[in-house]
Computed example of a mutant assay.
Amino acid sequence: MATIKIKQIKSRIHCPKDQKRTLDALGLRKLNHVVEHEANPCILGMVEKVKHLVSVEK
């Protein structure tokens, strides 16, 4: 599968607890942190849930 780079571009402050847990599950801990994951349905679903906080590159 293809890999995608996910970058946190907005703060997690004032976000609901489930969105904070989603960011933790993706491995994003701080602002401007970048992680690389395979583009499987599970990861893409998590990215969709926090799409207003992250940016995605291929």
Rank of each mutant, 00 (worst) to 15 (best):
L31C: 14
V56C: 09
T22H: 01
E48V: 02
K7W: 03
Q8H: 08
R29Q: 11
Q19I: 02
G27V: 02
P41G: 07
E36T: 11
K30Q: 07
H37T: 06
H14L: 14
A25C: 15
E48C: 06
G27W: 00
S55A: 15
K30W: 07
S11V: 04
K58Q: 12
I6M: 03
C42P: 11
A39V: 04
G27C: 02
V50D: 00
I13D: 01
V34I: 10
E36F: 06
V50T: 00
C15V: 10
Q19K: 14
R12D: 01
N32M: 13
R12G: 05
K10E: 02
C42Y: 14
K5N: 11
L53W: 05
L31A: 08
T22R: 03
K20F: 01
L31G: 14
K49G: 03
S55K: 15
I43R: 09
K17W: 13
G27R: 01
E48D: 10
L23A: 08
D24Y: 09
K20G: 06
G27K: 05
I6D: 02
A25Y: 01
A39D: 12
H37R: 14
C15W: 04
V35S: 07
L23F: 05
V50Q: 00
E38A: 11
L28Q: 01
G45Y: 04
R29H: 12
E36H: 04
G45F: 05
V56Y: 06
L53C: 04
I13L: 05
T3G: 08
E36K: 14
L44I: 13
L31T: 10
R29Y: 09
K5W: 09
G45L: 08
C42S: 13
H37I: 04
H52Q: 08
L53P: 07
K5F: 11
G27F: 05
E38G: 10
H14I: 07
Q19A: 06
L28N: 06
G45W: 08
L28C: 06
K17R: 15
